[in-house]
């Protein structure tokens, strides 16, 4: 099989097929799965850790764990859910190590905001940008649930598996994340922009 055919075969393979090949020691399958997951997984880690270098390290460690543990994957969840749960676990460990997990929304809110006044800001950025900016002020748990639901498009059940918590906890976190976001928007003089 030439290189192009091999690449197109990799692209057509399912996550499960790639993982089975990884379990047999196929390095090309590692590359294929990495390329498939790199963008969304790296974005998730950057948004969770707020540190590109750390996100690259955690991405690397996650994929190395995938390589090491591929043979132990039991197929009880989807491959993506399994990999995100590894990444989430490592990201939280990193945050704990750096003692940043306590840097919750209250502490962030206590940091003086040297941004321009509300009316100036709204003129300079649209509502979507404002929401994105304010999301950075949310706690890590809230940022994670928003990322996993809105960008990674995981279901409630999948997010519960990734975070290793009950489904109702996922819904509660989402509820409070959105409530907090609404409060931040209101503090900027924007009402009714988030439920």
């Amino acid at each position: 099989m030439d290189l192009l055919s091999a690449r197109s075969a990799d692209a057509a393979a399912s996550d499960g097929q790639l993982l089975a090949r990884i379990a047999r020691g196929d390095k090309d399958a590692v590359t294929a799965l990495y390329r498939r997951l790199e963008r969304p997984l790296f974005a998730f880690l950057v948004k969770t850790l707020r540190d590109r270098e750390a996100a690259a390290d955690v991405l690397n460690e996650t994929m190395l764990d995938v390589w090491r543990q591929a043979g132990r994957f039991e197929g009880k969840s989807s491959v993506a859910t399994w990999i995100y749960s590894i990444a989430h676990h490592k990201a939280i460990s990193w945050l704990r190590k750096r003692r940043e997990v306590e840097l919750d929304e209250d502490m962030v809110a206590a940091v003086p905001d040297d941004a321009p006044a509300a009316d100036t800001k709204i003129a300079a950025e649209d509502l979507t940008q404002t929401i994105a900016r304010l999301m950075e002020k949310l706690s890590v748990d809230h940022r994670i649930v928003l990322q996993l639901a809105y960008f990674q498009e995981f279901s409630v059940g999948q997010i519960a598996e990734i975070l290793d918590c009950p489904e109702n906890t996922v819904k509660t976190r989402m509820f409070y994340a959105r409530q907090r976001l609404r409060a931040l928007l209101e503090a900027e003089g924007i009402e009714g922009a988030a439920a």
Partner: peptide
């Protein structure tokens, strides 16, 4: 709107450095 904001912000994240792979 929230979803659009989260997606747009995540899509704006540059790819991981090539040396990671």
């Amino acid at each position: 709107r929230e979803r659009e904001a989260v997606s747009r912000a995540a899509e704006a994240v540059e790819a991981a450095p090539p040396e990671t792979l």
